[in-house]
Simulated assay, not measured.
Amino acid sequence: MTATNDFIPTTPYTHNIEKGIFQWSAPSNIALVKYWGKRDDLGHQIPANPSISFTLNNCKTITSVAFEKKVNQDNWSFDLLFEGQPKEEFKPKIQKFLERIAPYMPFLKDYHFTINTQNTFPHSSGIASSASGMAALAMNFMSIEKELHPEMTEEYFYQKASFLARLGSGSACRSIKGNLVVWGNQENIEGSSNLFGVPFSGKVHSVFENYQDTILLVDKGEKQVSSTVGHDLMHNHPFAERRFEQAHENIDQLIPIFETGDLEAFIKIVESEALTLHAMMMTSMPYFILMKPNTLQIINTIWKFRKETNIPVCFTLDAGANVHVLYPEHTKEKVLQFIKNELVGYCQNGQYLCDQIGFGAATL
């Protein structure tokens, strides 16, 4: 079993490098079984329950990291650009990330970094960019480490990238590889770990290939409660333990569902998980609601459409008001028509994004 210490280099790097630049893209992901709650007693960003997600394809962050050796190695040195412009308010989060990953990347203080990052989706669209952003950053730092230590295996490269991404944003560890990723110890899933995400190892029915995700942008404003605060509220939550058990049970049930392509059973679990996530928010103390009236309108309209047409379209939610509409590729034409006819009116400025299952981070 992999331990945290396995990611600390035990020997000096074999190569020296003065400067260079790497660029990676990493996608967002949408959890089918949700991660909500952390085990702080076990270290940074350890999930209280396992989760499983679809890696997306189009909604991604593209990040380049230029690096150059510097003389003073006592402190951190980096510039941060967002879409080519300095972005001071993002710097504390990057600083915290560097501090967390420093024990695993001893070269970090040797270089000055210029980090230039952009998203393929509109900024403040209400889509969390922390997962894709931290995943892209982790891939760049791993590329630098591989230059310093070319003997590194590909398996170790990707595993450590997921491990590092997790320290920046928990769900970022599910954005390294695709297309179905499990994060958290789950007895029936080989190689699963609390420390990093792993590609789902079971059989997957062809109906899940190119699965579609249309994201309806219901509310693009800042969430009134951050995910970090929401996770913390699970500590004394009256229903927390039962919720964590439920996540394990739901992943166990998904294993045969993925194999057989039973979409009716898939829909029940995915929608139940989305509603459970928000039920946890509504029953924490203090309690809060991230759904908006239009979120509920969309859910009811999807249920009505599915009942009338038998088309296997369903919804899931993140910790926010936006709705992810999930459906198999063969229903794409009908579902997109339904979205345009009946759901777009509930979106802020009529905005929605079309996406589908993708395959993780890519070097550019």
Score class of each variant (00 low, 15 high):
109 K>E: 15
153 T>P: 03
150 P>Q: 01
162 S>I: 02
163 F>W: 00
162 S>A: 13
158 Y>F: 14
125 S>P: 12
110 D>F: 13
151 E>W: 00
127 I>Y: 09
110 D>K: 15
160 K>S: 01
120 T>G: 11
128 A>C: 13
110 D>W: 13
116 N>C: 07
136 A>Y: 04
154 E>W: 01
140 N>G: 06
152 M>S: 08
140 N>K: 02
145 E>G: 03
117 T>C: 14
159 Q>S: 11
153 T>N: 03
137 L>E: 05
163 F>Y: 06
139 M>I: 04
119 N>H: 10
133 G>L: 08
144 I>F: 03
137 L>K: 02
112 H>P: 12
109 K>M: 15
123 H>F: 15
133 G>W: 08
147 E>Y: 05
144 I>Q: 01
119 N>T: 11
142 M>L: 09
112 H>Y: 14
128 A>H: 12
120 T>M: 11
115 I>M: 04
134 M>P: 08
148 L>C: 06
118 Q>Y: 09
162 S>V: 03
156 Y>Q: 02
144 I>K: 02
146 K>S: 14
163 F>H: 00
143 S>R: 07
150 P>N: 01
131 A>Y: 07
159 Q>P: 00
132 S>K: 06
136 A>K: 05
116 N>I: 06
112 H>G: 13
156 Y>L: 03
129 S>D: 07
116 N>T: 11
145 E>P: 06
130 S>K: 10
138 A>N: 04
145 E>Q: 14
118 Q>A: 15
113 F>N: 07
149 H>G: 00
116 N>R: 10
139 M>N: 07
142 M>P: 02
152 M>Q: 14
146 K>R: 14
159 Q>K: 13
126 G>M: 10
115 I>W: 04
114 T>S: 15
137 L>Q: 12
112 H>W: 10
151 E>D: 09
158 Y>A: 02
157 F>W: 03
149 H>V: 00
128 A>Y: 07
141 F>Q: 04
142 M>D: 02
135 A>L: 08
128 A>P: 13
139 M>G: 03
127 I>G: 06
145 E>T: 07
137 L>V: 05
136 A>R: 05
110 D>V: 07
114 T>W: 06
132 S>T: 14
125 S>H: 11
150 P>A: 04
156 Y>I: 03
147 E>G: 01
155 E>W: 00
121 F>T: 14
145 E>L: 05
148 L>K: 04
132 S>E: 12
122 P>D: 08
145 E>M: 12
117 T>A: 12
118 Q>D: 10
128 A>M: 12
135 A>S: 12
150 P>E: 01
130 S>V: 06
111 Y>Q: 13
124 S>Y: 10
135 A>G: 15
142 M>K: 06
130 S>E: 10
122 P>G: 12
150 P>V: 03
113 F>Q: 09
147 E>P: 00
123 H>E: 14
147 E>I: 05
119 N>I: 13
